[in-house]
Design a protein around this nucleic acid. Structure first.
Length: 361
DNA sequence: AATGCGGGGTT
DNA sequence: AACCCAGCATT
């Protein structure tokens, strides 16, 4: 690719990094590959400010990869609760156990072996390889797409195969291979601090004189993306069935949102229904055959916006009479134990607001 | 090549 | 309401 200003870009980015950049984060300059890996998994599609406290808690709870590998799934998911994209947690655990068993707890040392770990893609492998071992692999994340698209005026959409190839190739050409860790850290910090998505600091940008987007007034338009996602609505009705300070929950197993998190008895409906309609529904009869109870009440709707779906959840509390029946797929747990299980945000929000987890439980 | 996967901040 | 965030796995 023959593009103008490549040498200027790398040189001045590194000058900005050493002379102006003051960004500080707990994992910055870290050389322990386990800690670097942990931070990178947590930060996938996650803002630094959001991931920061999770990183601190994980390092404290699991100081080494062997500690993490030995932990139970449910305990680790409880630590991950609220961070989202829960398959990251499952893959992280699988990778920790691979490293503990197949590598005797020693983190793999090559780009290819790092890339082979569950939950590690091209970005994360490049980050670990460069930060921990100084290997010459350029990171390509959302920051890099934005910085390069603007500086070089690239109009190829970033969410296509062609775009990924083009940006990855260019990023590799720009990398200073003698200091790949510093360079990779610099370009991401630069994207976060100067070349931000909104209101970039072009007036104080040391690259603006050679920035094609800035020179042609297209900074706000770049980078380009193509896909527009359709957002689906779903109506969740959770039955909180209580018998003597115990409540039914289950772990979500199906290929759907919130896999491996817990929930109450779920009746999903294709459209909103009233309390009476819910109790008369086919789903209710199938889930709770012959259960006798007293209705405590239906909660207000709890709305949660996900990337591809809007979840509208309501909670119906039922006080069971007589003996607690066995319900297929559900377990009966004491209300005081709910804090040991990981729940999606919608449910923890309800539990906090209703004080169900505090006073009643 | 397209799609699904959370939760939160910013504008 | 729309967009984005230290992306990845699956189909």
């Amino acid at each position: 690719m023959k593009r103008a200003g490549k040498a200027f870009f790398t040189e001045n980015l590194l000058i900005w990094n050493s002379e102006i950049n003051t960004r500080n984060m707990p994992w910055k300059g870290e050389k322990d590959p386990y800690r670097i890996w942990l931070s990178e998994i947590i930060l996938q599609q996650t803002r630094v400010e959001q991931g920061w406290p999770y990183y601190e808690r994980f390092i404290k709870a699991y100081p080494t990869v062997n500690h993490l590998a030995r932990a139970s799934d449910d305990e680790v998911f409880r630590h991950w609760q609220g961070l989202g994209y829960y398959n990251r947690c499952r893959n992280m655990l699988a990778a920790a156990r691979t490293i503990s068993k197949d590598y005797q707890g020693q983190f793999p040392h090559t780009y290819e072996s790092i890339l082979a770990l569950k939950g590690v893609g091209a970005y994360t492998a490049a980050a670990i390889a460069s930060f921990a071992y100084g290997l010459p692999h350029a990171v390509v994340d959302g920051n890099v797409y934005r910085v390069l698209a603007r500086y070089f005026g690239i109009q190829t959409p970033t969410d296509t195969t062609e775009g990924k190839k083009e940006f990855t190739l260019l990023a590799g050409e720009l990398l200073d291979k003698t200091q790949s860790a510093a360079y990779n850290q610099a370009i991401m910090d630069f994207g976060a601090v100067v070349c931000k998505p909104q209101q970039p600091a072009c007036s104080s940008c040391p690259l603006s004189t050679q920035c094609l987007a800035y020179q042609t007034g297209r900074v706000e338009q770049l980078p380009l993306k193509t896909k527009k996602i359709m957002i689906r609505q779903r109506f969740f009705y959770y039955i909180i069935l209580i018998y003597n300070k115990q409540v039914y929950i289950r772990k979500r197993k199906e290929k759907d949102i919130w896999q491996n998190l817990h929930e109450f008895i779920l009746l999903e409906q294709p459209c909103p229904v009233t309390q009476a309609e819910l109790l008369a529904s086919e789903g209710y009869r199938a889930a709770l055959p012959g259960v006798s109870f007293k209705v405590e009440g239906l909660s207000a709707p709890y709305k949660q916006q996900l990337t591809h779906q809007t979840i509208i959840a309501q909670f119906l509390t039922l006080r069971g009479k007589g003996r607690a029946p066995a319900l297929e797929g559900y377990q009966l747990v004491p209300q005081s134990m709910l804090n040991d299980y990981a729940f999606p945000k919608t449910i923890t929000s309800y539990l906090e607001k209703s004080a169900l987890g505090l006073t009643l439980f």
